[in-house]
Amino acid sequence: MTASMGATGQAASTGQAASIGQEAGFERLAQRHRRELHVHCYRLLASYDEAEDAVQETYLRAWRARDSFEGDALARAWLYRIATNVCLDLIRARARQAPRLRSLAEVSWLQPYPDRLLDEAAAAEDQPDAVAVNRETIELAFLAALQVLPARQRAALVLRDVLGLPAAELAELLDTTVAAVNSALQRARVTMARHLPSHRVDWSARQPSSEERELLARFIDAHERCDAKAVAAIAAADIRVTMPPYPWCFDGLDMLAVLLQRAFGPDREGDWRLLPTAVNRLPAAGSYLKRPGDSKFRPFKLDVLRIEAGVIAEITTFGPAVFPELHLPATWTRAS
């Protein structure tokens, strides 16, 4: 489950310490760790956009502090320290802590993370830390549960239980004691266990299974045919639909029927076409809508499916802002 920062990083040489003081050397260091730092910040913040801002701030602070970088230090650990503190500052400044977690709707700032970016990082054979990126705890349920934790507990749990940072190094990074770290971890783990869905047996990310891909295909087919009964046939009786950043939460087949009537009924806004994709290691579909009088299908929403026991247990619907990162087309002209 964990990938120790010490095990995956290599001690920086004196030559490396000197090289990062130069722009070219610093840029190489930045590019080497950018994706995993972005995912680390994303996990703490649960926002793709805010994670991007955090990474930029991380490298700004790192550049300003480059003279303090020591040749016998770990470059990766040095950057993680800076990135974690940037995120802690953002969490406090923006009050990014959910008071409770009855559903994903409680985390209004939650955004999806494209699987293809995780795959790109894992495919980079020259990055020894790529495995850590690939195995990261990235599912929406885990991210949302993290947002209930206070900032330091959140950072402690991610750095210890996900990245495998030893307690002593974690205490140094957070400028506290090992005893305080262990206490924070204990409280964080209890809170996480209370808020994670009961179906979770571990925290390891994985690719969507063949069963999940098949259900996604059936979901897409039913959606394009505007067949509400076909959607209901593959949905759990207690299915939940949320739409961050909106605070709405729809539970059960009766509420799903209301939503499908709006999307598929005679007063619907137009015709649908969907493309399969994946975010947060979950199957997803990018939806395009062609309104009356328009010749093109235009981006409308992203539905992320959580599948349990062979049916769709939860649908989390986001806006289409992430379509470019998913390499989904800006418009679609496929015939109806």
Rank of each mutant, 00 (worst) to 15 (best):
L140G: 00
A12C: 05
S287G: 15
V55G: 01
F250W: 03
S295D: 13
G71C: 06
D72H: 10
A237H: 12
A3R: 14
A124S: 08
D67R: 01
E212A: 00
A321Y: 14
V148W: 12
L45T: 01
A335W: 13
E325L: 12
I315M: 02
L302E: 03
P320E: 01
C226V: 08
R291V: 14
P245V: 08
P247H: 10
S287K: 10
E136A: 10
A230H: 12
L74I: 05
H199A: 03
T277L: 04
G25W: 08
Q111H: 05
A30C: 04
L196G: 00
A3Y: 15
D238Q: 07
L88E: 15
G71H: 08
L170F: 06
K301M: 11
A193V: 04
A263Q: 02
V241C: 08
Q111L: 04
Q261V: 09
P324K: 05
V181Y: 11
P292Y: 08
T14N: 14
A179C: 03
R200M: 04
C87R: 02
Q261A: 07
R116D: 13
F297E: 06
D49N: 01
R187Q: 10
T137C: 09
A184Y: 11
S198F: 01
L256D: 04
H38V: 12
V241H: 11
G310P: 02
E212P: 01
N134A: 12
L274T: 05
E172P: 00
I91C: 06
A335M: 03
M192V: 02
V201R: 09
T14M: 13
A51W: 06
A141P: 09
P244A: 09
A18D: 15
D175T: 11
A93D: 11
M255Q: 15
A12G: 07
L118P: 01
M5N: 07
A24D: 13
L328P: 00
R116I: 07
A313V: 07
Q127H: 06
S103T: 15
V162I: 10
A309F: 10
R135P: 02
A3G: 01
T317Q: 09
T316H: 04
A122E: 04
F300L: 06
L174P: 10
L185S: 06
R64C: 09
E224H: 00
F323Y: 06
Y59G: 07
R28E: 15
A156E: 08
Q207H: 09
F297R: 00
R28S: 15
R200K: 04
R268H: 03
Q22T: 09
E120Y: 04
L289Q: 02
W203D: 00
S210V: 09
